[in-house]
Simulated scan of single mutants.
Amino acid sequence: MKARFDQKELVEWATQVLKKVSMPESDAKTTAAILVKADLRGIETHGLSRLPIYVKRIQKGGINPKPNFKILKETQTTTLIDADGAMGQVAGKFAMSKAIEKAKDTSVGISSVRNGNHFGIVAHYLEMAINNNMFGLATTNTSPLLAPFGGRKAILGTNPIAFGFPGGKFYPVILDMASSVTSRGRIKLAQLNNEKIPLTWAVDERGIPTDDPNEALKGALLPFGAHKGYGLAVIGDILSSVISGAGYLTHTGELYKEPEKPQNLGFFMMAVKLEAFIDIDEFSQKITDFIKTIKDSPKAEGTKEIFMPGEIEYIRESENKELGVPLGENIIRELKELGDSIGVEFNCQQK
């Protein structure tokens, strides 16, 4: 059973933690809010569970809490940004803001980022575009976790690719997906629980699919859809890192193992003004009908409702805003230990 906490209290506490390790208040609040939003949406792997490693990386030098963003190249529609080792959420917000700013003038804005770090849930940056009557695209690369199709060594990141559109009278449509079948975190959980994993999740050191999480953790994750997921991982890395000048493939810092080393991840963010193609009211009408047609279509036996991409996360967020942000015992313990270690007591009250 998970304990529940007030959203504002958690954001304020996490903000104070990040301020304690020299991050300016506005940047600390940005990071804290994005972390808590992930927990609100049930995406625990990208929520407050990441705060301890973020703090450790700041303390060890892997994250720069006071970056000086540099614009390396700029055109009417594009911006190349050196994030100076910034917290990923701070760099991500800056990059999408620049893309939106340009899209307001030219209908299309694209930001490419180098020297970034892990930036949390991609959906947040797409919502920035959506809230400006735009649609968005965002990618980032990660440290190597994924074997290429036919390979046995982790060469590629899980490299999420995400798209987001306003939803008219429904929730926005947001597809935010990594290129792997599952996360390394789920394999670690199976290891802790002494459980087997599906053979489709990972390969061992020889490149053979394994149901043993211990062997899987020595090997590599598998891409979803075999060659299709592999292809998306490749494209995500090229878009994110090769064109930005960031680290790619094995030329990136590992989030947990090398806290003193900047990850040098790359981001690619694009915002496109819908009015460049269609009147906003007309789009809203059409996308509402589009979504309604899908949701009202005949359902398979045993299915009560058809959900759009991202809809379940929005429903969870709405429910958890009322009930409280759910946090597991292990995460609460880690947050209390973190607070004690830097002098910011975890004093958030359970609801």
Rank of each mutant, 00 (worst) to 15 (best):
F5I: 01
D6T: 05
K8N: 15
T15K: 14
Q16H: 10
V17F: 08
L18D: 13
M23E: 04
P24I: 08
D27P: 01
A28T: 02
A32G: 10
I34M: 14
L35R: 02
D39R: 04
I43A: 11
E44R: 03
T45M: 13
G47P: 00
L48M: 11
L48P: 00
V55L: 11
K56M: 07
R57W: 08
I58T: 07
I58A: 06
I63P: 00
K70D: 12
E74I: 03
Q76L: 15
L80A: 15
I81T: 06
D84K: 01
G85P: 00
G85I: 07
A91C: 10
A91I: 10
K93M: 14
K93G: 00
A95S: 07
E101P: 08
A103G: 11
S107K: 09
V108E: 10
G109E: 15
G109W: 14
V113H: 11
G116T: 09
N117V: 10
F119Y: 15
F119N: 12
I121K: 09
V122I: 12
A123Y: 09
H124V: 05
Y125T: 05
A129M: 12
A129T: 11
I130Y: 02
N131D: 14
N132P: 04
L137P: 01
N141P: 04
T142I: 11
P144L: 14
L146K: 04
G151N: 02
G151R: 01
G151F: 02
R152S: 13
L156T: 02
L156K: 01
N159D: 05
N159C: 08
A162Q: 08
F163R: 08
F163Y: 15
G164V: 05
G164T: 08
G168Y: 05
P172I: 13
I174F: 03
L175D: 05
D176Q: 07
S179P: 03
S180F: 12
T182Q: 04
T182A: 15
K188R: 13
L189P: 01
K196Q: 15
L199Y: 11
T200E: 15
T200L: 15
W201F: 08
R206V: 02
I208G: 01
P209D: 04
D211L: 01
D211F: 06
N214R: 11
K218L: 11
L221V: 05
F224M: 04
A226E: 15
H227Q: 07
H227Y: 12
K228G: 03
G229H: 00
G231R: 06
A233W: 03
V234W: 13
G236D: 14
L239T: 02
V242K: 04
T250E: 14
H251Q: 15
T252I: 09
E254W: 09
K257Y: 09
E258R: 03
E258T: 07
E260L: 03
Q263E: 13
N264L: 06
N264A: 07
L265M: 10
F267L: 11
F268A: 01
M270R: 02
L274E: 00
I280K: 02
I280C: 01
F283W: 06
Q285D: 10
F290P: 02
F290Y: 14
K292T: 11
E301Q: 07
K304M: 10
E305W: 08
E305Q: 09
I306H: 09
G310R: 06
S318P: 02
N320T: 07
G324C: 08
V325W: 01
L327V: 06
N330L: 15
R333V: 13
L335I: 07
G339N: 01
G339A: 07
V344T: 04
V344D: 09
Q349D: 13
K351S: 10
